[in-house]
Structure formats: structure tokens, C-alpha cells
Amino acid sequence: MNPHIELIDRYFEAWNELDAAHRRELIASTWAADASYADPLLSGNGHDGIDAMIGAVHERFPRHTFRRTTDVDGFGNRLRFSWELRTPDGDAIVKGSDFGVVDASGRLAAVTGFLDAAPGMA
């Protein structure tokens, strides 16, 4: 069994959590204190930066949800997986792939995201 599946499922739970206090708990249990996230549109550093970034996504895409679309693949402390952002009606409007590094405590140290499909992409 892949040891990173639970971690990445919690990662998506944090992305989808609307309650700010519960989202902070999920971030603390999923991300290292000095973790970083970067994709072509967003970036965040540390728990505060990651929380602010997720909050901004909720403001821009209300009631949208992220869903993992592939297995979590990896070796050692490196992993990758793909996802989609779904509208409240269930339509996938953005698709991407993330690559992560897990620290010695089993939390995410860094995630780099790539957009595979988005409105306006050729």
C-alpha cells in the first residue's frame, strides 16, 4: 500500500475545507511548518501562506471542489498525482498534476503544481 495516499487525501480535504479553523488544522497535519506551494497562478509559504492561498481560491471559485483523479505515484520522499477542480454542478473546469516532496515526519515539504487543462489554454 502506498504510504502517501492518506497524506494526499488530507491535502485535498484541506483544499476543500470551508471552515477556516478546521482548514488550519488540516494544513498543520499535512504540511511542514516551512512548506511551500507553487503553481503558475499561486504560491504560498508556511502554514499562513498556504492557508491564505487556499482561502483565495475559495473566494474566486465558491463551492467548487478539488478531486484527485489518479493514484498517488512515487518513490522515496517524492510523489505525483493529478486532480481536477469541479464546479458545484460537477463539471471539471481545470485539471492539473502536482509533484510533492515529503519530509522526514511524513508531511509535505513542497508541492509544485502544473495546469494540464484550463479555460483559455490551447
Rank of each mutant, 00 (worst) to 15 (best):
S105A: 10
D48C: 05
H64M: 06
D91P: 07
D19T: 11
S29M: 14
E6S: 14
N45G: 10
N2H: 12
I54Q: 09
H22W: 04
L26C: 13
E13W: 11
D34R: 01
A28G: 10
H22Y: 02
N2W: 09
A28Q: 15
V102K: 01
G55P: 07
R107A: 08
V94T: 05
A33L: 15
D34V: 01
H47I: 05
S82N: 09
D48I: 00
L79V: 07
D9C: 09
G76C: 13
G96F: 02
R78Y: 08
E17R: 02
T69Q: 12
A32W: 13
S97K: 03
F81Y: 11
L18Y: 00
F61P: 03
G74P: 04
R60I: 07
V72D: 06
A33G: 03
I27Q: 00
F66L: 13
H58M: 07
E6T: 12
R63L: 01
I27H: 01
F61K: 05
N16M: 00
R24T: 14
D71P: 02
D91F: 12
R60S: 13
S29P: 13
G44N: 11
V111Q: 14
G90D: 13
F75V: 15
E13T: 10
A117T: 13
V102E: 12
A52D: 06
R80F: 10
D34Y: 05
D9V: 04
G55F: 00
T30I: 04
G120T: 03
D71K: 08
M53C: 06
R24E: 14
S29T: 13
L79H: 09
G96K: 03
S105P: 07
V101C: 11
D9G: 05
V101A: 04
D51N: 06
E84F: 08
G106I: 04
G74I: 10
T112E: 15
R10Y: 09
